[in-house]
Design a protein around this nucleic acid. Structure first.
Lengths: 228, 228
DNA sequence: CCGGATCCGTAACGATACTG
DNA sequence: CAGTATCGTTACGGATCCGG
């Protein structure tokens, strides 16, 4: 039983031979917000068959994109995490995710559609220029469409974690539609529309920095900040 | 008969709902080297079922990523081409293709594995900074693993076409492995190894420019040029 | 020949039940 | 908790056929 292949000597098709099957790239996305247990993946990847998940993580492990790791006692459980090659793959997914944020959000969130804030944050965080965060140390707690996730910046290291973090400097409450517009489009400079759906609470100068990091790319600013 | 969906309010999963099925992204890749007829796609996407191809182009058309266009008489045939949204999607695929070039070329080309030079060139061309080509007008004929394709640069416009072009300024003969290493890795500065498998013929200064365009990104040069 | 549509066998996927 | 096992359904692959 051999693996299905496009049989083309091409970077894209060889990538897709490896990770083009259903669910595979979403598993990689899940691991972008830190190591996860098998049952975490089952919970968050709603609809995946457990047999399929087991098969996928085995493939990803064999292909060197993720590793199993035993947590030290007393946890006694194992987690999956990205290898360096897996992290490079994750970085390569960012433009595809941003393309989706730009082109596939005309239709709003369906009622039954799942959502987790870290799904958005991992890709927006990848857009942040690490060099612009030297000397910065801050924790931003996001609530996006009522889902919590945190963005931690520590002197060039940018990390996203699901749920609520401790010692948060700033709390951002918004909806995904607004956040996607803010980060992926040239928003109207005064952010009037966005301001209605974007609440920022906490230290004003730190909040200002966040808005600059999210909107300022390629050396130019996409939006001027409004803060409360 | 509804379309299968991950049912997640996320940029990546919504992208994959649209273009994550088998063959879809390879059709997009094909159209990156110019409009193609149905039978062109059948020929080049070896192994795709004609029913599946028909279904895919219909989807891509409905989703606004490609359009059908009637060629003017006496051609009397129709071609498919990318829309602006489709071109943005294509641009988003570049990192994934480059990831494949970096991580999936340890195993060499299999004997039965298909290859076309434009598959490589469209992604390498996308890495070229258009701003670096202002005032430049040149046509580079590539022969990669014995397959021909041309890269045309015209004052900021970079275009790839399959096959042999007219009025070529420079002819580059190489194998994909060498070219991939050259463009995606920090190659040893004197290119000694690459020079064995890379022959450049034509105007020396224009050839020099090509090597700079292919290896110089993010403002730094990955390789010094060797030209014959 | 081009641009598909139809049919059918096989492989992949999805849901649930079960196990160490 | 971390998976297997089973089984019905869907998607894909290959071939053939059909209208312009």
């Amino acid at each position: 039983m051999t693996r299905r292949s496009y049989n083309q000597y091409c970077g894209l098709s060889r990538s897709l031979d490896l990770v083009g099957e259903r669910w595979t790239l979403l598993i990689v996305r899940e691991l972008m917000s830190g190591p996860k247990r098998y049952s975490d993946l089952v919970d968050t990847l709603d609809g995946i068959g457990t047999n399929l998940l087991a098969s996928r993580v085995k493939q990803l492990d064999n292909d060197g994109l993720i590793t199993r790791k035993q947590l030290p006692p007393p946890a006694a459980s194992q987690v999956y995490e990205l290898t360096p090659a897996g992290r490079e793959l994750a970085a390569a997914l960012v433009p595809l995710a941003v393309w989706g944020l730009r082109h596939r959000f005309d239709e709003p969130r369906r009622g039954d559609e799942n959502y987790r804030a870290e799904w958005t944050l991992v890709f927006l965080a990848a857009l942040i220029d690490p060099a612009a965060t030297t000397g910065v140390r801050a924790v931003f707690q996001f609530w996006i469409d009522d889902s919590p996730a945190a963005l931690s910046i520590d002197n060039g290291r940018v990390v996203v974690t699901p749920g609520e973090a401790d010692d948060t400097d700033v709390v951002v409450t918004t909806d995904l539609r607004t956040l996607a517009d803010l980060a992926t489009r040239d928003l109207d400079p005064d952010l009037t529309k966005a301001a209605e759906c974007l609440m920022i609470d906490g230290d004003a100068t730190v909040a200002q920095l966040l808005l600059e990091l999210l909107t300022e790319r390629d050396g130019r600013s996409h939006a001027r900040a409004v803060c409360c």
